[in-house]
C-alpha cells in the first residue's frame, strides 16, 4: 500500500536519471530514508521514508503517539535519530543543527513563548537567536504583528493573550527569519472553531507566498484543509501516502451512511446490514456503511425493515481512510 507508492516514487526518480539528481536536490527540502528513533525497546519512529518538495504543504496525519512530533524534532535537529538518513535543505540536522534551523520556522505543539518578555520583544529576541540585527528585526516585528493581527497587543504581556493569540504569535515568531520551511506541530489543537479558521487563513497566505509547510495533525479536517500531500502514520510506520483526495478515493468510497440504532442494538443489526454496502464498520456508538450513494443505501436499509434512531449521509473523509487502514478512529 503505502510502501508501494513510496517505491513507485523512487523508481521514477531513478528512471529520470541523470536529470533526476539535479532536480531532486533542488526541489526536495526534506528527504528521509529508513528514519528511525528508538527509546530502548520502544520504537517511536520505525524506518519511515518520505520526501517533501519545495513549496508543497505536507502533512503527517496520525493519532497521538504515532511518532509525528518525534519526526518533527528530528527534522529540526533537536533530537538525534537512532538509524536512517535524513537530509533537510541538503544538510544533516544532527551534525549541522544551527545551519539547518536557520532555514526553518518551528511552531511546537505547546506554545513556548517567553513569559518574561513583552509580545513585540518575543519576536525581536527570537530573531536575535538567529543572529539577525535589530535594524532588520524592528520593522520585521511590526510586519509580523500585523500578519498575526496582534499590532494593538505589541506591548502586552504574553500571559494576557488568549489561546488563539498565543498561537498566532508563536507562528509569527517562527517566521522571523523568513524560513523556507515552516514546521507546524498540531497547529490548532486546543483552539475554538473561529480561532482555527483565522489560523488556517494565515497559513494559506504563507502557502501562497511559497513557504513549504509541514503540518502534523490528528484532525482530518485540518489535514484536508491544509495539506497538498500527506502520509498517514500509525505506531511509527507509514500506512499510506498521497493527496487527501487520492487517499479517500483509494481507501474509501465516495459517501458514508452513518446509522445509530442505540448502543444496545448496534451489534445485533450488523448481520442484517451485510451486503447492503461495500464495507461496514461497527463503532461503539454507530455503524458506518460505505457506498458510492449513501441515500440509496439508506433506502435499502429501510427496505430491509430496519429503522435506525438517526441516520446521516456524508462524504468520505480522511477519518474513514484512517479507520480503514488501522481499524481505529483518529480521535478516541
Amino acid at each position: 500500500m503505502g510502501g508501494g507508492q513510496a517505491n513507485a516514487t523512487r523508481q521514477e526518480s531513478v528512471s529520470c536519471a541523470p536529470y533526476a539528481a539535479v532536480v531532486t536536490s533542488e526541489e526536495l527540502v526534506i528527504r528521509a530514508r529508513g528514519l528511525t528513533k528508538a527509546y530502548g525497546d520502544f520504537v517511536a519512529v520505525d524506518g519511515i521514508d518520505f520526501d517533501v518538495r519545495r513549496g508543497e504543504s505536507f502533512g503527517l496525519l496520525g493519532p497521538n503517539g504515532a511518532g509525528k512530533s518525534t519526526t518533527m524534532r528530528m527534522i529540526g535537529g533537536t533530537l538525534g535519530r537512532t538509524a536512517g538518513e535524513l537530509s533537510v535543505v541538503g544538510l544533516d540536522p544532527e551534525t549541522q543543527g544551527p545551519q539547518v534551523r536557520a532555514h526553518l520556522g518551528v511552531v511546537p505543539q505547546q506554545d513556548n513563548l517567553d513569559d518574561d518578555l513583552k509580545v513585540r520583544e518575543n519576536l525581536i529576541m527570537y530573531g536575535r537567536y538567529f543572529g539577525l540585527p535589530r535594524s532588520y528585526l524592528v520593522p520585521k516585528s511590526a510586519e509580523l504583528l500585523e500578519f498575526a493581527q496582534l499590532t494593538d497587543k505589541a506591548s502586552a504581556r504574553v500571559d494576557d493573550l488568549s489561546g488563539g493569540m498565543k498561537r498566532r504569535l508563536t507562528i509569527a515568531r517562527g517566521l522571523v527569519n523568513e524560513p523556507e520551511v515552516l514546521l507546524l506541530d498540531e497547529p490548532t489543537t486546543g483552539l475554538d472553531p473561529q480561532a482555527r479558521h483565522t489560523l488556517w487563513d494565515r497559513l494559506f497566505r504563507l502557502k501562497e507566498a511559497g513557504v513549504t509547510l509541514i503540518v502534523t495533525t490528528h484532525f482530518m479536517d485540518e489535514a484536508e484543509q491544509l495539506c497538498d500531500r500527506l502520509i498517514v502514520i500509525d505506531k511509527g510506520t507509514i500506512m499510506a501516502e498521497g493527496s487527501p483526495a487520492q487517499l479517500i478515493r483509494q481507501y474509501s468510497t465516495r459517501e458514508v451512511l452513518e446509522l445509530r440504532f442505540g448502543s444496545q442494538r448496534n451489534a445485533q443489526v450488523v448481520a442484517q446490514l451485510e451486503g447492503l454496502a461495500e464495507r461496514i464498520e461497527v463503532l461503539p456508538d454507530r455503524i458506518l456503511l460505505y457506498s458510492a450513494d449513501g441515500e440509496a443505501t439508506l433506502e435499502r436499509v429501510s427496505g430491509a425493515g430496519l429503522h435506525p434512531v438517526t441516520s446521516l449521509v456524508r462524504r468520505s473523509s480522511l477519518e474513514d481512510v484512517f479507520l480503514r487502514l488501522t481499524g481505529r478512529t483518529l480521535v478516541d
Binding site: 549541522q96 544551527p98 536557520a102 532555514h103 530573531g127 523568513e178 524560513p179
Partner: peptide, 21 residues
C-alpha cells in the same frame, strides 16, 4: 534574505558546529 544572513554567519569556521553557533 534573513535566512541567508544567518547562514552566512554560520558558514564561518568555528569549533563544535553541531552544538555551537
Amino acid at each position: 534574505s534573513p535566512t541567508q544572513l544567518a547562514v552566512e554567519r554560520l558558514a564561518r569556521p568555528r569549533p563544535a558546529p553541531g552544538i555551537w553557533s
